[in-house]
Design a protein around this nucleic acid. Structure first.
Length: 296
DNA sequence: GACCAGGTAGCAA
DNA sequence: TTGCTACATGGT
């Protein structure tokens, strides 16, 4: 196991680990105390951890440091939590009033950079479900269909690969992961990923448009899920996913952006929230959801 | 029991 | 194109 500490002052604008990982943008991290989306703070000595890519990465936060352990190095942590993004720079460009409110309400949330396939699967399962349940389902998928990883004397379940999911069946996915009707989508997408893994896997050099149209070919992926993967895994920071919460805020606060067309709303918010639409969407989503739900 | 949750696929017009 | 609806499941 490797380990290390990152002084918080080396991270421009800082980071709030809890808000970053429990804001509903990623469902691939868990806590060693078993809680998640409950509002409770991470107790002393407990960790956030993720096991995607057959690797383990554990993180916790003190007043002065990010402390990490894992089978991977510190570079992975910087990438996964986008610690190179300068939040101070991003804040300085925010002009929209609601966005300003959201940024000051809960500062230091960072966009994540999730691995592609687990991100895709997790958002396919997110359709018409609340965040707590989405998160539980990823744990069930890992425990029932993924491999295990031993590190530091402990055993962790790893997020299943497309091959592992495809060697299961829709019925089994439905029963063991409680996926409901989404089991067919997850299964079909796993099969498709297996077939053209080389083509679709790393889309580093593709344009936003071509990446999105590739994503839309997967079963269970529509505009919103595609946008989430573009933003939370593929690094397209200009994308604004429109879900029920953002739609509500458009109706109440941005009448000029209201439309029946997904693309029209999304484009309109992209312009309104420039030059950091993706970040703004993340903060606004967190802000309105926590206020209206009184969830933490 | 109704309603909602980070929606999508499959139709009809 | 746009507009409807069914879809599993768990929580309020």
């Amino acid at each position: 196991m490797k380990s290390g500490k990152i002084p918080l002052h080396e991270i421009e604008g800082g980071v709030d680990l809890k808000r970053t990982l429990e804001s509903g943008q990623t469902f691939l991290w868990r806590r060693t105390d078993g809680d998640f989306f409950t509002g409770k703070n991470l107790p002393e000595g407990e960790w956030y951890y993720t096991t995607t890519d057959e690797e383990l990465l554990k993180v916790r936060q003190t007043d002065t440091h990010l402390i990490w352990e894992g089978t991977v190095g510190e570079k992975t942590l910087w990438e996964r939590l986008r610690l190179h993004d300068s939040l101070t720079d991003i804040y300085s460009h925010v002009e929209d009033p609601l966005a300003q409110k959201a940024f000051s309400y809960s500062p230091q949330i960072r966009l994540v950079n999730d691995p592609f396939e687990p991100c895709l699967f997790s958002f396919i399962t997110s359709s018409n479900m609340n965040v707590k349940r989405i998160h539980k389902i990823q744990t069930k998928l890992s425990e029932n269909f993924g491999s295990t990883l031993k590190a530091g004397g402990e055993t962790f379940s790893v997020y299943p690969t497309p091959t592992e999911i495809a060697s299961s069946s829709p019925q089994e996915l439905k029963e063991k992961a409680k996926l409901g009707y989404r089991s067919e989508w997850v299964y079909k997408t796993a099969e498709t990923l297996e077939d053209n893994n080389k083509v679709m896997g790393g889309s580093e050099n593709k344009s936003l448009q071509s990446s999105k149209s590739d994503l839309l070919k997967y079963t269970g992926v529509g505009d919103k899920v595609a946008d989430c993967v573009l933003l939370y895994s593929l690094g397209f920071e200009e994308v604004v996913p429109i879900d029920t919460w953002i739609k509500k805020v458009v109706e109440e606060e941005y009448n000029d952006c209201d439309s029946k067309s997904y693309e029209t709303i999304s484009q309109c918010l992209q312009e309104k929230w420039a030059p950091h639409p993706g970040y703004t969407q993340l903060y606004v989503f967190d802000y309105i959801r926590r206020n209206e739900n009184k969830k933490d």
